[in-house]
Design a protein around this nucleic acid. Structure first.
Lengths: 353, 353
DNA sequence: TTTCAAAATTTACGCGCGTAAAAATTAAAT
DNA sequence: ATTTAATTTTTACGCGCGTAAATTTTGAAA
């Protein structure tokens, strides 16, 4: 039974079982082989060539468990996002994986499925893995800050997307202040001032910042802020945007003809609701409504109409997060100051507002 | 510097360094502790209680690298999907992670980012991890079948979503024949027979099956099949659907007023194109076009209009894949017969057709 | 209380690799 | 050819755990 499987493997070259064997077939001593695998440049060029020639012939790969057993920390870097099924985080994770690989580490991707317990679970799994560091986008409101703080004291951790004050070596995110200001400004300049459509109890701390920024921006422009705070839990933002958008439109309770949604996924649901109510959304004549979002979600360019929004600078956030982490790892020490970096958003003018 | 980090950790209980120490503080011998961690039910109930009480007090966790070093295979199960930023695969992966955890294994999630080299890379990474098995959704056309076949001979592998003939212990996917038949039938019954909108060189083998099924279904109903094969590479299906949909609509080259898209993501792009051309999509009076998709993609209920499509049975596919893999793993032997399981789709009637 | 199988303990070895120390070799500079 | 620093080799130990074998203890049934 087990034999059966084994027989299938090709037997062209005698299988190398461990570093000892590989050392003997390659004619190099084991400690030197070991040095090579830890850093190929640490051995003489001629030696490196001999090893690499042997490597082509015998395809030996060191046992990763044996390698890491005695290391205080490994070359693994954890990447944890709150919700992998959200294309925003999927994209973010993709970027980070690339950066981590490019820096010579191995990414370990974990999604928390919107569940705080799983988030802690993921942290625990990672801890066993003795990672060199972690890039963490916390759930936000649902998160267990104590457990995360605890973890971040054992493992170099850089937070991104959602800030938990004082936790981690650094935080990298979007400048919600600036980006909301940008779009509120734009909307006020081109039509009625927007009301702000959001969840009453958002799971994401950015939502709070955006609310504040909206209120401040409106007041600065001499307008009355109008918050539309709807019920809804979890991460199914489109569903909430649709359901509550439908309700609001039905009740005709919108204070103005312009709605700024706290994020694109809510806006996608809202737009769908407006469409079904037969309301024409956009900024031309004959449009009953303007809708804007926030994030430049991958799907926002395919909504009907296409969604006017503010972009988050995916790439800068991913890059800065990764680089901050590498710095902490390579300096070996905790940063003296917890650095918070915020990237500005850009206005993305499309059809909906 | 390193000390600094260490000082932060709480010192309430003296830190347990290894199983030996935990054995002594818990008053149980090390071999018994070892037995417990491999299977808590394998020790006497009273012993288990004593261990668990000690566990609460000292929070020791075995070194996973030491544990796995000598195992022929671990409790890890790899889950590889071609593209994590596609919510379909993200959802699928999420389900599978849950099932894997429930079965007492540890999922290791890997995305191939639409890149065949990375797919092989992922396989290689997994091999080092000595996983008990792998759930693999291959890229399809881009995949390197030889490398995958090789891998699947060393590691129990169950394929899902995209079939590579003869590779792996089993394949689980959708019954494209049935589902395409279903929707072609529906479309013909309720209006003009559909043309089939697809990529000329689809990356996914399902696309070929769907094309064939479309042709067969049309012929069975006495209609002329009309294939609209558009250019486009990669995994940005919405962009392709939009770009080529726009072109097709501009050229007025559609043979009928009904379009069946090979998948929902193409349809999402197509719908967006139709909207921007000012064409009303749907089945009522005054609609110029009907559009249908395939997959019941998470976003298809928020398109404008909402997308009529055929659902893939996410959950059944995930469950059956996982269970097939567990069976192979636990039986310890390769299945005598490579089983192919196809789940029927269900018609999801919404606004677009 | 005796009996006895089940469970735990004691003892000991091995896994694949990192790595330290001392000796030997290499290759570049004098 | 000689000196010398840089590498490699030899030798040896340790890491944390799995696990086998022999022995002792446990606890339930007789």
């Amino acid at each position: 039974m087990l034999e059966e499987r084994r027989l299938k493997t090709r037997m062209s070259e005698p299988k190398i079982r461990n570093m000892e064997e590989f050392a003997s077939v390659s004619g190099i001593s084991r400690p030197t082989i070991s040095k090579y695998f830890n850093d190929p440049t640490s051995v003489r060029a001629t030696t490196r060539e001999r090893i690499e020639r042997a490597l082509e012939q015998f395809d030996y790969q060191p046992n990763m468990y044996a390698i890491n057993q005695n290391r205080r920390l490994t070359k693994n870097i954890g990447v944890i996002v709150p919700y992998l099924a959200d294309p925003f985080f999927a994209e973010m994770a993709r970027h980070m994986e690339d950066l981590v690989i490019a820096a010579g580490y191995r990414p370990v991707l974990l999604g928390s499925h919107g569940d705080a317990d799983l988030e802690v679970e993921n942290l625990n799994s990672l801890r066993l893995m003795k990672p060199a560091g972690v890039l963490l986008a916390p759930l936000g409101r649902g998160s267990d800050p104590e457990r995360i703080a605890e973890f971040s004291q054992d493992v170099p951790t850089v937070l991104f997307d959602a800030n938990l004050e004082t936790i981690g070596e650094a935080f990298v995110g979007s400048n919600n202040q600036q980006s909301i200001n940008l779009i509120v400004d734009y909307l006020c300049r081109t039509g009625e001032p927007p009301s702000f459509f959001e969840m009453r109890l958002p799971s994401n701390p950015n939502a709070f910042k955006r609310r504040q920024a909206y209120v401040a921006a409106m007041e600065a422009l001499g307008h009355e802020p109008q918050l539309i705070q709807v019920d809804g839990d979890g991460w199914e933002f489109e569903a909430i945007g649709f359901r509550e958008g439908s309700r609001v439109l039905e009740e005709r309770s919108l204070p103005t003809d312009t709605v700024l949604c706290s994020n694109d996924r809510l806006a996608i649901g809202f737009l769908s609701a407006a469409y079904q109510k037969g309301m024409r959304v956009g900024l031309g004549d004959g449009c009953a409504l303007r809708v804007a979002g926030h994030d430049d979600h991958p799907f926002s360019r395919y909504t009907c109409p296409t969604l006017t929004t503010v972009s988050q600078d995916y790439e800068s956030i991913a890059t800065k997060s990764a680089e901050s982490l590498f710095e902490v790892i390579e300096s070996g020490s905790a940063e003296k100051m917890r650095e918070e970096t915020l990237f500005d958003g850009k206005l993305v003018m499309r059809g909906s507002a």
